[in-house]
């Protein structure tokens, strides 16, 4: 029990919990939003959609160790204002120097949301949005065309068909996507580790990094597993409502 007390009074772990909360929310919604937009666009049967589809999936094929480094270079701020680097340099050269910012080296926050997380979220969404798109595509392709044809005969517009017919059918897909994304966001390690480490004053630290360091560097095996257990219990926050709603809908059916 001493281990648990220690962990909860630890300021680093408190930061980790806030980081996980915000990261998970923005990451999941970012992926779902981008994923469904990309799926609809690719699904609109224009020529070359397949090529676009492959490009959107491509980031997923790359190892996190390497993409993490690429993102860490892109969002490296350089020395502002005279010596911008990465994306700041790009902004600077196209006259958008107002957008220059300290990115993941920023230590500012708002209601415990560390702004340094924003670049990390962008990197993670980039990598996983393609897969979310693929899941939605599978769902869209799975919808019998008889459904939509019937609606079209009734004179429904494209948007109506989407909102009234396709979207409700996609609900189970959205749920699986949410669960999969949530589990990635709680396990995320390689990307953050390669991209920012823990950040200045742990602004981009996540529990998996803390657990890794506690277990395998500090040799505090018991405390490391305590962190893992706490994380697993927190997972219940995601899973239980999901299970309840999914069992309910099963009963109805």
């Amino acid at each position: 029990m001493k281990n648990y007390e220690r962990i909860f009074s630890d300021s680093r772990f408190q930061t980790d919990l806030w980081n996980t909360l915000y990261f998970t929310i923005f990451f999941i919604f970012g992926c779902l939003f981008l994923g469904i937009i990309l799926a609809i666009l690719v699904d609109s049967k224009v020529k070359g959609a397949g090529i676009f589809q492959n490009f959107f999936l491509f980031p997923m094929a790359l190892a996190f160790v390497v993409t993490g480094t690429v993102w860490s270079w892109i969002f490296a701020p350089g020395i502002l204002p005279e010596n911008p680097e990465g994306i700041n340099l790009l902004f600077n050269s196209i006259g958008l120097s107002g957008l220059e910012w300290k990115w993941y080296t920023s230590t500012d926050s708002f209601i415990n949301f560390n702004f340094a997380l924003i670049p990390v979220i962008i990197g993670a969404v980039w990598q996983m949005a393609g897969y979310t798109m693929a899941m939605y595509l599978a769902g869209l392709r799975g919808i019998p065309s008889t459904f939509t044809e019937a609606a079209m005969v009734d004179g429904a517009s494209g948007w109506q068909i989407f909102w009234k017919i396709k979207f409700p059918i996609l609900k189970p897909i959205t749920f699986s996507a949410m669960i999969i994304l949530a589990h990635i966001s709680l396990k995320i390690f390689d990307l953050v580790y390669a991209m920012t480490g823990s950040g200045p004053n742990n602004v981009t630290d996540v529990p998996s990094i803390y657990m890794w360091e506690t277990t395998f560097r500090a040799n505090k095996y018991a405390r490391g597993s305590a962190i893992a257990i706490i994380m697993l219990l927190l997972v219940a926050i995601f899973i239980v409502p999901y299970l309840v709603s999914s069992f309910k809908s099963n009963k109805r059916a």
Binding site: L34, L41, V42, V46, F52, F55, V70, W73, I74
Partner: peptide, 22 residues
């Protein structure tokens, strides 16, 4: 169709930025 293409291309550029660096 044109709107779809424009949107796809915008997303594509964003997606390819890191790939370019790579």
């Amino acid at each position: 169709k044109i709107i779809v293409y424009i949107l796809l291309t915008v997303f594509l550029v964003g997606f390819l930025l890191p790939i370019y660096v790579l």
